[in-house]
Design a protein around this nucleic acid. Structure first.
Lengths: 316, 316
DNA sequence: TAAACTCGAGTGA
DNA sequence: ATCACTCGAGTTT
């Protein structure tokens, strides 16, 4: 029982207040992220007003072809899977069946449709942002623990060389790829985020290794990752606050952790950190924690739980 | 090896052509579903034009308060988790920081923002539709098998009484909740979709039982579901075509199936049907199929695989 | 209401 | 290009 704050399953459950606060932050951030999408829609409108008199003119403006496709309901993701013929058909259908019947309102119709697709895109973007905010919060707590314990550390953004921890500021926390330190027993420790673990051929959110590397560019790190003896901790982090997604994403995490258990011949510590934890999954998580299948766990919205987990992590 | 079409893992992999076709269908359907969202935006614009002269007038129009909140970036889902104070704050911020600075373009700004949120909503709606289309396809293949085998069956839409299969038409396939028949060995069979299995306290996509019920209203069905001896097959169905979601959703399905294995004291047949199957997960699925952990499996986009699975299913 | 279902919009390695 | 990560927009029971 490595986390003194996890004494029973119910403690893991996310409070309504944490949920409220999470959704509020989400709405505020979403409004900020909406601006460029709104701007692009306005720019599209301006181009259409300046360069078209009727729907038939639209196809001839090369620079808005992609926007036209998006207005026709095709996401950037979907585009990659469609053939040229599919896209041409969708465009022509869109012009004939949607824009032309709108008469003189064809510009408004196209911009409105474009915004619908943009809204879906904004939603996708937000989901990624929420994930990296969770990562950032974990980083802040780990760094705080290192500082409290007066452990010197280095960190790297992207795949650059390591910078001394004394240069660490809150504004770099969102781009940290790896942190390195020497623990109380004078052992090298390397924490890497979102890295492909070759033993499972899958990316893992949190990986703690017992080797130092000069940088996280492919080769030196790959060599360390290749040897399963170098692994200390592997963890899954789920930053989403939506209770409706809680069990869904825990099921995903659970299979991901199961794959690690199967792939590694030696036992290593597995951890789970989630922001949306509901009663039923709290039982499963706690049960795995009690049996040792999970070495540690925490609710990301509970500072005490998270701090305890980080304190444990840097001591491994 | 219950499915003669599943001879090796790679056969389960979704073809690029099936993917292309899936994304094309998706785009066409999305454009149809977009219409009411576009209409609501136009209606909102009309109300704003008719009843407001400036952003300050908006709050006084009670009937557009929810739309205003959505324009302010709050989804219907998020609304449920926010306090009145949160929502008031978001509304006021939206008016002060977004609409007022737009000057005379405040109506356009509000409608554009509303459309962004609507686009996310449309995306959510589409995801549900894709799921029910998959269910519908499975129903059509099962009914076809029953018809081919000249097995009489009854079906129920929603939770009504059962209707004789001779009344079955393609247009009801999307609302079938359960199908009942008597198999070759004169045994009662009941197939139910999306039903809560009390042994795991979770909903399961596909459940085959060996009891008949008069209707699928709570009580008679609940009694059958309560006794684990009545279960023959439990299955997960994943209708999504996006390869990026394939492993994600297989991981979810895998934990769901794992929960069933753990919860049931007797062995029962577990099956998996997915539309997006990638190489790596195909190996895992096939491996479970070979070991018997999965009794059957199929790629939803492959008619032969699906028909074979359905032929096996109605013989159980 | 609570709980957990639907799945692809992004992203990056 | 390939693969598999981010998570909440809907929905139902």
């Amino acid at each position: 029982m490595n986390n003194p704050h996890i004494t029973l399953a119910d403690i893991l459950i996310t409070t309504p207040e944490a949920r409220r606060s999470g959704f509020l932050e989400y709405a505020l951030r979403r409004n900020k992220e909406a601006v460029p999408f709104i701007d692009k829609a306005k720019a599209l409108k301006a181009i259409l007003q300046a360069h078209t008199q009727s729907p038939d003119d639209i196809l001839s403006i090369e620079k808005i072809k992609e926007s036209l496709l998006e207005a026709a309901g095709v996401s950037v993701k979907a585009k990659a899977h469609l053939s040229i013929a599919d896209k041409d058909r969708l465009l022509q259908d869109f012009i004939d069946k949607v824009l032309k019947p709108s008469g003189s309102a064809y510009i408004e119709e196209m911009v409105y449709r474009y915004l619908l697709t943009s809204g879906d895109a904004l939603g996708g973007k937000m989901r990624n942002i929420i994930g990296s905010i969770a990562n950032e919060k974990l980083t802040r707590f780990i760094v705080s623990q290192l500082q409290i314990c007066q452990i010197e550390f280095t960190y790297t953004r992207k795949n650059d060389a390591f910078t001394h921890g004394k240069h660490f500021t809150i504004d770099v926390a969102d781009s940290i790829k790896a942190i390195q330190w020497t623990n109380g027993q004078n052992q090298q420790r390397l924490l890497v985020y979102n890295v492909n673990v070759p033993q499972v051929k899958k990316n893992i959110d949190i990986v703690l290794l017992k080797q130092a590397v000069a940088n996280t560019r492919s080769d030196p790190l790959k060599k360390v990752l290749a040897d399963e003896k170098n692994y200390l901790v592997i963890g899954e982090l789920k930053g989403g606050i939506d209770p409706a997604g809680a069990d869904e994403h825990w099921k995903t995490a659970n299979t991901a952790l199961g794959r690690v258990r199967t792939a590694f011949n030696r036992q290593l510590s597995l951890i789970f950190i989630g922001a949306a934890i509901e009663a039923s999954m709290a039982q499963e998580i706690f049960s795995q924690y009690q049996s040792g299948e999970l070495a540690n766990c925490a609710n990301l919205t509970d500072d005490n739980q998270l701090a305890s987990l980080c304190a444990w992590l840097i001591e491994q």
